[in-house]
Amino acid sequence: MDWKLLESEYIYRVEPWLTLRRDKCETPNGTIVDPYFVLEYPDWVNAVAVTEEGKVILVKQYRHAIGRTLIEIPGGVMDKTDTDPEFAMRRELLEETGHVFDKVYSLGAVSHNPSTSTNLTHMFLAVGGKKVQEQQLDENEEIELLLTDVEEVERMLKENRFVQSLHVSCIFYALQRYRQLSTGQ
């Protein structure tokens, strides 16, 4: 079922934020698909972060594309200097929350739109968080931290209060893993 890439041309590039590519492809039955537009992004990371006191760290920030302030989980873009997704996640957690975490568990990766975008979002559960510094935010970031109970996060998920779909996926997997860890399974 895989397509054969015949040609590829970059239309627009502002790395790492947006790269648009035009491909010409051939399907297994010989159909030529031209143009096929692809958005290239670096991989992203996000995590459900739980402090050593058992509080989940949520972040509240404005999202300009939809014009709303949202409650989300910590996360961000993988930098070229990040050695792997866990390293990137630990860096993002420290920058956005000021916390370091005893354990970080990988929950797999998801794609926000595999038909048009190249990147994955690597999901994590981070536990045992201790505050070691103040936030170190980018100049365009304003992030308010919210500490809440796991049960409140579950309620918010059930009430559809998380808008960011990649965060919803992570929260779903993280709550399952957190329950397993809590019950010793």
Rank of each mutant, 00 (worst) to 15 (best):
G30R: 06
E151M: 05
I57D: 00
E9A: 11
M78S: 03
P16H: 05
V163N: 02
D43P: 04
L93K: 00
T27E: 12
L145Q: 05
L20R: 03
R177G: 04
V150I: 08
K103Q: 15
K4Y: 10
A174I: 07
R13E: 14
Q164I: 15
G128Y: 01
P28N: 04
F162R: 01
L125F: 01
G98P: 03
D34M: 05
D138P: 04
C170Y: 05
K158D: 14
K130S: 07
L107T: 03
A126K: 01
H122Q: 10
T19L: 11
L166F: 12
H112W: 12
I71Y: 06
L5H: 03
N140M: 12
P85L: 06
V150D: 00
A65C: 15
T183R: 05
G128K: 00
G30T: 13
E95W: 08
D79S: 12
L18M: 11
P42R: 06
S117L: 12
P74V: 04
V150A: 00
L107A: 09
A126L: 07
Y62F: 15
V33S: 06
S117P: 03
I71L: 09
M89I: 10
R68A: 13
E152R: 02
M1R: 04
L175C: 03
D82Y: 13
I171L: 03
T183M: 10
Q176W: 08
E96I: 05
T148V: 10
Q61L: 14
D23K: 02
D23C: 06
G67A: 08
I32P: 01
L145W: 06
R13K: 13
I11T: 05
G76N: 02
L20F: 07
I73C: 02
R177W: 10
S115W: 09
L166R: 10
D79Q: 12
M89K: 01
D2C: 10
S106P: 14
E52K: 12
L146K: 07
R91G: 02
G76R: 02
D43F: 07
R90F: 11
A49L: 08
T31L: 14
P28G: 04
R91V: 05
L146T: 10
Y178T: 03
A65V: 15
W3S: 07
E9K: 05
E159A: 12
I66H: 04
Q185E: 15
R90D: 07
E7Y: 08
V100I: 14
N160W: 13
Q135N: 11
M1V: 11
M1P: 08
P42W: 09
M156Y: 09
A174P: 01
Q185V: 15
R155C: 06
F162C: 04
V56Y: 01
D138H: 12
D102V: 13
T148N: 01
E159M: 14
Q136K: 13
L58W: 01
C170T: 12
E151K: 04
W44I: 07
P74F: 06
E139R: 11
A47P: 02
D138Y: 11
L58G: 00
L18S: 04
Q136H: 12
M89H: 03
T118Q: 03
L70H: 01
L181S: 02
E7C: 06
K131H: 06
V127D: 00
H122K: 04
D138M: 10
H122W: 11
Q176G: 13
Q61N: 10
V127T: 11
P74G: 03
L94P: 00
V153D: 00
M1W: 06
H99M: 09
M123H: 07
S8E: 13
I171K: 00
G129Y: 01
